[in-house]
């Protein structure tokens, strides 16, 4: 309990605008303290991706605070920022693997935050890292692909590698930006299952941006609905009503 308390992720009054006067995030306040999948739903362009990227500072928010590990991430730079980033795993819609490296090395790139550039160049990964990587690879069902290049894998397999890479970081929180949007429905379910299993096993929250509301409801312990840069729903997945969805997505023709 004490540890998970320490690893709270708190977002306070977060604002972001790419162009002055056109805010995309407006005063987001969110606390993430329980393990499991927290699904963030909302229409395209409503700032879901921006929100995730503001957390690990791939995007610098215009104002607000991101408290993680008792530090405000918006106030740290350089080495300090990287030290915190390595405890925030991230999974992407387009997988974003290093296509020309092997699967096992893609997993090991999750350890880059813990090692010097020289050791990265010489591929001096520690034996522990190598052991963890192989075990994780076995867990995601890709043991036989360890020495294949990432560009020889299918979409679903690549996303498993992407998730494994994030878990290699030994994260206190997982961020996933539309991890299932490029996959077929069956694979999408498998990927959500995998994220769910890993989040529970690691006892960490996994923030997942997702379009598919029913898929989200199936796996999430909590859902956050966003619209127009605001949070308009925050609660259990069962609590989402058609009215909420109307408010989030606007209109109703898409419902039937």
């Amino acid at each position: 309990m004490a540890e998970s308390q320490q690893n709270y992720l708190q977002i306070r009054n977060l604002n972001h605008e790419y162009e002055a006067g056109k805010p995309i995030l407006r005063g987001i306040d969110l606390n993430f303290d329980q393990p499991g999948i927290i699904a963030i739903i909302g229409p395209s362009g409503t700032g879901k991706s921006t929100l995730l990227r503001c957390i690990n500072r791939l995007i610098n928010p215009t104002s607000g605070e991101v408290l993680f590990d008792n530090v405000d991430l918006t106030s740290v730079e350089g080495k300090e920022l990287r030290r915190h980033r390595r405890h925030i795993g991230m999974v992407f819609q387009e997988y974003n693997l290093v296509e020309r490296l092997t699967v096992i090395e893609n997993l090991l790139t999750g350890r880059l935050g813990y090692m010097s550039a020289w050791n990265a160049w010489r591929r001096n990964y520690t034996q522990d890292d190598i052991n963890n990587a192989f075990e994780l690879l076995e867990m995601v069902g890709l043991k036989d692909f360890a020495k294949q290049r990432a560009d020889s894998l299918s979409g679903g397999q690549r996303q498993r590698v992407g998730i494994a890479r994030a878990v290699m970081q030994d994260p206190y929180v997982l961020l996933a930006d539309e991890p299932t949007s490029s996959l077929d429905p069956k694979t999408a379910v498998e990927i959500m299952e995998l994220m769910d299993t890993l989040a529970r096993r690691k006892n960490i929250p996994a923030l997942v941006n997702i379009h598919d509301v029913s898929l989200a409801q199936r796996f999430a312990v909590r859902m956050v609905g966003m619209s127009g840069g605001h949070v308009v729903y925050d609660g259990p997945p069962e609590g989402i009503t058609e009215d909420h969805l109307k408010q989030i997505y606007g209109g109703e023709s898409w419902l039937s």
Binding site: T102, I104, E105, R123, Y125, Q127, I130, N131, A133, F134, A146, K147
Partner: peptide, 10 residues
């Protein structure tokens, strides 16, 4: 049994 995996980068 903690077995070490061989280094994949001979």
């Amino acid at each position: 049994v903690v077995k070490d995996y061989p280094n994949p980068f001979e």
